[in-house]
Simulated scan of single mutants.
Amino acid sequence: MTTTAHVDPTNREQAQAWDGTEGEYWAAHPDRFDTALARYQPAFHAAADIGPGDRVLDVGCGTGLTTRTAARAAPGGEAWGVDLSARMIEVARATAEAEGVTNARFGRADAQVHPFVTAEFDGVISRTGSMFFGRPDVAFANLARALRPGGRLTLLTWQPADRNEWIGVFAGTLAGRELPPSPLGSPGPFSLSDPDHVRDVLTGAGFTAVALDGLAEPEVYGRDADDALAFVLGLLGWMVADLTPAERDRRVEALHRTLAAHEGPDGVTLGSAAWLVTARRG
C-alpha cells in the first residue's frame, strides 16, 4: 500500500478537506472522535466477524482505531487502513507502533480508484467513512473486486438527519437553519442514509445478502458544556466565521445553552442513529 494516492476527480473536494484543515483537526483529536462513536464500536466489530487469519481493508480509517481492532482480531492476518488524510495516516501509524500492533498497515489512498489486488481481502470495513465517495457505484464495485468471493463488507453509516439529534443541534444553532439533505449519490454524511438506495448501490456493485440493522446510541461530545463547545467550534466554527461579531456570539451562546441542557453523568451527549450495513461479495 503506497503512501501517495491518485485521487479521482470526483473526490478532489473531499481530498482537499480531509487532507487539509478538517483532517488536521481530526488528527489532533483522535480520542475525542473515537469516544463520540464508542458505543457503536462493539456492534460494528462483531458484525465484521473477522477471523484469526483474515486480511482486512479499512476504508476511511482515520486515525486507525478500527484498523488496530481488526488487526488484533486477525493475529495471523493483517489489516490495511486507507484514508485521504496524510496527517491522520501519520497518527494511525504512530499509534499502532506505540501499541505494538505490528500487523496493522496504513496508506493514503482513494479507495474509489485504488488498484487493489483482485480478491486480496477477506473483509472490507468502514466506520462512517464510506459516505463521502464522489461515485459510490464505482467505489463499491472497486471494493467488491478487492474482496474474495463470499468476503464480507461491513459499514456504519448515518441514518437520515432527522434521526440524528447532533446535526440538528449543530446546524440549527450555528448555521441558524437545517442543513439541506445531501442528494443521494453525492458525498456527505447522509448520502447512504436511505436503505433502498444503499441496497441498490451495493447490489449494483456485485454484493449480495445486503442487510441494514438500525442502531441508536448517544454520542459524547465533552466532559461538560464548556469542553463540548470548544470541541464543536474547533470542528464547525466555519459555520459562524462570516457573521458579525454580535450574531456570532449569539449563536455560540445558544449552542452553549443547548449543550449545557444535555449534560449528564457521561458528559454532554446527543442522540444519534446509524445503519449497520453488512453484505457479501457475490
Rank of each mutant, 00 (worst) to 15 (best):
S130W: 01
A73N: 11
T154I: 03
G176H: 13
A139N: 02
A171Q: 14
S186N: 03
P160M: 10
S193Q: 05
G100E: 13
G123V: 14
W80V: 15
E120N: 04
G64V: 12
D122K: 07
S193F: 05
P189C: 06
G168C: 12
G168S: 13
R72N: 07
R163E: 15
Q159S: 04
F140K: 02
D162R: 13
F106V: 09
A94R: 15
R72G: 10
V117W: 00
C61H: 03
A73H: 14
R145E: 09
R105D: 12
E165K: 10
T95I: 10
G185H: 11
E78I: 00
T154V: 07
T154L: 01
F132P: 01
A104D: 10
S182T: 15
S186G: 00
G134V: 07
L156A: 03
R152I: 03
S193V: 08
V101K: 07
A146I: 01
S191I: 02
C61E: 04
G76I: 12
V138H: 10
G134L: 06
G172H: 14
R177G: 04
V82R: 00
A139E: 01
L155E: 02
A71T: 09
G172V: 14
V113T: 15
P189H: 06
R148P: 02
V59H: 04
L174K: 11
R68F: 11
F106N: 08
F106L: 08
P181S: 12
T128S: 06
E97H: 12
S182R: 09
F190E: 02
D122E: 14
R135Q: 10
D83F: 08
G100K: 09
V113C: 13
V91W: 10
